[in-house]
Amino acid sequence: MRSTSRGIGPADTLLALGQSCLDRGEGGQAFAWFRSAARGGDARAINMLGRCHEHGWGVPADPVQAAAHYRKAADLGDGWAMFNLADLHCRGIGVARDDEAAYRLYAASAAKGNAKALNMLGLFHESGRAVPADEAAARALFKAAAESGDCWGRFNHARLLIGDGAREEALRWFRLALDSGFPDFYRSMAVALAPHPDPQIQALAADALRLAETRKEACR
């Protein structure tokens, strides 16, 4: 059921159909496509079943079921499932809050190439959560996430650059963050930047708020 070097497999088609339904707000049909793909053991599809259960897409929201699907997909090696299960452990939703487990899962997801996981590891190192506080490690992780295209990584990298007095470089990364975000991120960015006295940073906050109102959130 998985794609191979010979071409696109049936699971890829079912996943694409499910994502298309999600994009149109058809959660029930999306869930049905993901469930069909998951029957063949496709880890990506199992992860998407977890997403459906977490967010109530086509089924009642059930974080315990979401965690079970994420764990199964993570055990099969899916990097996004590792990230999503880490998020639940980080927040204590559907599973016990466990910062150490969250950190391990974020690290495993990052090893799979997930830039968002790099950013989360940066936050853990910056705050001393689950690991000793280490500003140098946090900076390196934020920069790696930023260079890999993650909007939060770009924001956090820019945030630290502002603190360093590297204004022009920070503005460049804030602008790049605007190119790669989603509505909730844009709203958070607007709130964070709006009080800043620099007019260009205030303008970026206004741009972020405008984007929050005009862009539809994509499902990962």
Rank of each mutant, 00 (worst) to 15 (best):
Y106L: 11
A101W: 10
N114M: 13
G113I: 08
M120W: 06
A137H: 05
F155T: 01
D134M: 01
A137V: 08
A133Y: 04
C151K: 03
L105K: 03
G122A: 04
E126V: 00
A115M: 08
E135R: 14
Y103L: 14
A117M: 08
C151A: 15
K112Q: 15
K116M: 10
K143H: 14
G128R: 08
A110G: 03
A111P: 04
A146M: 01
R129A: 11
Y103F: 15
K112M: 14
G149I: 09
N119W: 01
K143R: 15
A133R: 15
V131Q: 02
A130F: 03
A110D: 11
A144K: 14
V131C: 02
R104I: 07
E147S: 07
Y103R: 14
A144C: 05
V131L: 03
G128D: 09
A110I: 10
S148V: 05
E135M: 11
E126M: 08
G149W: 10
A130N: 08
R104K: 11
Y103W: 12
R104D: 15
S127N: 12
K116W: 09
L118I: 00
K116Q: 10
G113Q: 07
A138N: 04
A101G: 03
A102L: 06
L141I: 01
A158Q: 01
N156T: 01
L123G: 02
A111S: 13
A117G: 07
G122E: 02
G122T: 04
N114C: 10
C151E: 11
K112Y: 08
A144M: 04
F124T: 02
H157A: 05
A133S: 12
S148T: 07
L105T: 04
R159C: 11
K116N: 09
H125R: 11
A101Y: 01
N114V: 14
E147I: 05
A140I: 01
A117D: 10
G128N: 08
A140R: 15
A130L: 03
D150K: 02
L141K: 02
R104L: 14
A146I: 00
R139W: 11
E126L: 13
M120R: 15
A158S: 10
A110R: 04
K116F: 04
Y103M: 13
L121F: 09
R154D: 03
L118F: 03
L118R: 13
A144I: 02
N114I: 13
A110V: 07
S148M: 12
A101S: 14
S148Y: 04
A146D: 00
D150L: 04
N119L: 00
A140C: 07
H157E: 09
E147G: 03
W152H: 14
